[in-house]
Nucleic acid binder design. Sequence first.
DNA 1: AAAAAAGAGAACAAAAAGAGAACAAAAAAA
DNA 2: TTTTTTTGTTCTCTTTTTGTTCTCTTTTTT
Lengths: 208, 208
Amino acid sequence: MDVLTRRQREIFNFLRDNQENFTYPPSLDELCAALDMASRGSLHKHIMALINAGLVEPFNGNKQTGIRLTAQARLEDVAAGQDLPFVGSIAAGKPIEALETLSYMSVPDALKSDKPCYVLQVKGDSMIEAGIFDGDWVVIEQRPYARNGEIVVALIENTEATLKYIEQTAGQVLLLPANATMTALSYRPEQVEIQGVLIGQMRSYRSH
Amino acid sequence: MDVLTRRQREIFNFLRDNQENFTYPPSLDELCAALDMASRGSLHKHIMALINAGLVEPFNGNKQTGIRLTAQARLEDVAAGQDLPFVGSIAAGKPIEALETLSYMSVPDALKSDKPCYVLQVKGDSMIEAGIFDGDWVVIEQRPYARNGEIVVALIENTEATLKYIEQTAGQVLLLPANATMTALSYRPEQVEIQGVLIGQMRSYRSH
DNA sequence: AAAAAAGAGAACAAAAAGAGAACAAAAAAA
DNA sequence: TTTTTTTGTTCTCTTTTTGTTCTCTTTTTT
């Protein structure tokens, strides 16, 4: 597969950076106006190249409802820049803030994996005895399963997310804090959704 | 393979140091402008030499899509670039392995400072209660002084180096471990040389 | 002085980008 | 419904950009 030309990359970047400026996925004419181009046909060539590269797709099948980025596009972009998306903070007792990427963070290779990863900032002391402190950053590998003993980002009852050790048996899932002042929580498997597994941790000692 | 001429090395260095200033792999014309050259043809000769040397390659076959550094050249970039030197490990009771750079590690900006920094890997449990575990990496800002309460790399009697909390008073220097099973050490100021101060910490949970 | 390296500038073919027209199907409006 | 507008698609033609090659001149090195 061919690599994007400069103009194609330019248009893709524009699409990526201006998604939220379009109330609905933009049509070719709309894009022409936004890109200050006079010819729909010319733009069409570029869009076809982006579709070919898997970065863009028609929004509603073959209907004329505009185009949008593919799910793959964002990850590819992240991979190309090798920075990880920093998606917000996780505090015991609150749902994780929706996975909108706030910014990007360059992370050492040793703290990543070859699968999609993202970075969260930890709020609270529930994992203090595991050496994970309030304010630390954690690198999370995005996957829906975990082995016992791993530290996971778990979404409980679709409402609150926490960072805990996990122990799974036939009928129950145990979420264990690393803090003697807190107690373990026991759930049925269907109450808990694993959102990712801890694979890295970082701390800054800068006072600023 | 021929050796690079001075000008060729100059152009390669420019390419290496400015690759992030180009939004897209640069064309010959763009490079001419950036290098303040008037002739594409002249530049072409140099680029061909770099391609011949394996340092540079067309971005997409022979299409008009610019040139980029080869994978091999990127290694040179890491060495010269913004990554921090990884200089070895520090274990309580042993001198720090001489500050020869073993490799480089890309470290998040938040864990660096604007002063010279390097990375060490921690051996031992002397700082376990401060959340610094065996095998963790620490980012050290290289400076010969510290404030009380900071965690420092201290060289004792020119023979052994440790990572400890520091408390300095008029006549003595206290080095405090963060481990209830260990005891604090007391020295005279001239016995202790501060080699750097902890400003960042990282941990990998990958099994591998 | 001779040789090597670097540079300017012209010329050319191919690639890429763009303009604009035409058309059929879908969506919106009457 | 019918009509009008919008949208995606395809096409040809023109302009711009890019990589490449060439000759000739200038600068640097030996």
